[in-house]
């Protein structure tokens, strides 16, 4: 009983991000101490479980979204619009992957997601409540073509959007709770969405 309970509770603690710094901001979430767990064994275990090469604070900061702004799971077969602004950073990238980290971009899509150096900025009104409006952004994500910035996805898998900010003060100088990230709203209707 002890063996089972111990193993189960350890698994549950990691699954539920217990004792691990994780920030939720609308649809977006970010782990803040996986790169340098600094004596937190739960963060070390979580980092090993994820298995990646976490970014240090001087490199950048990563947010992931698995739901839209209403809390519904994101699906690669549906259309979405990202509206709003991205925090100050020298560079940011946006990518679409499945739960195993495999790309959900359509075959023949020109690049691996989009980035801040190759985007079209939208008029402020279109981006809606975009805070100061300086970085007003409209990005379409989904299988149906859209004008402007468009990440073309395919498959019917659960979709994870990854927003990475490079050379940013988010996470170090600027608290994760003090920033504004794009809202993810449903786009053009499709069957099954």
């Amino acid at each position: 009983m002890g063996l089972g309970l111990g193993g189960w509770s350890a698994w549950k603690a990691l699954e539920g991000d217990l004792f691990i710094a994780r920030n939720q901001l609308g649809s977006w979430s970010a782990y803040t101490d996986l790169a340098a767990p600094q004596g937190n064994p739960y963060a070390s275990a979580k980092a090993a479980q994820i298995g990646g090469l976490p970014m240090g604070l001087a490199e950048g900061f990563e947010f992931t979204a698995t739901t839209d702004s209403d809390g519904a799971p994101l699906l690669a077969g549906c259309n979405y619009m990202l509206l709003g602004s991205v925090p100050q950073a020298r560079l940011w990238t946006l990518d679409a992957v499945d739960e195993a980290g495999v790309s959900l971009l359509a075959d023949g899509a020109p690049q691996s997601g989009i980035n801040s150096r190759a985007i079209v900025h939208a008029p402020v009104e279109e981006a809606g409540r975009a805070g100061d409006g300086v970085d007003a952004l409209v990005i379409a994500v989904g299988p149906d073509p859209a004008p402007g910035n468009w990440i073309q996805t395919q498959s019917s898998a659960r979709l994870i959007l990854t927003l990475r900010l490079y050379d940013t003060q988010v996470g170090s100088g600027v608290g994760v709770r003090d920033i504004s990230l794009p809202r993810i709203v449903g786009g053009r209707a499709r069957e099954g969405c």
Binding site: M1, G2, G6, G7, S9, P41, A45, A48
Partner: peptide, 17 residues
């Protein structure tokens, strides 16, 4: 049992990395 569970919990968390 609880003590064993605690020990297993700690061992598992420390062993994963």
């Amino acid at each position: 049992g609880m003590l064993l569970a605690c020990l297993v919990h700690i061992t598992v968390v420390l062993a994963i990395p």
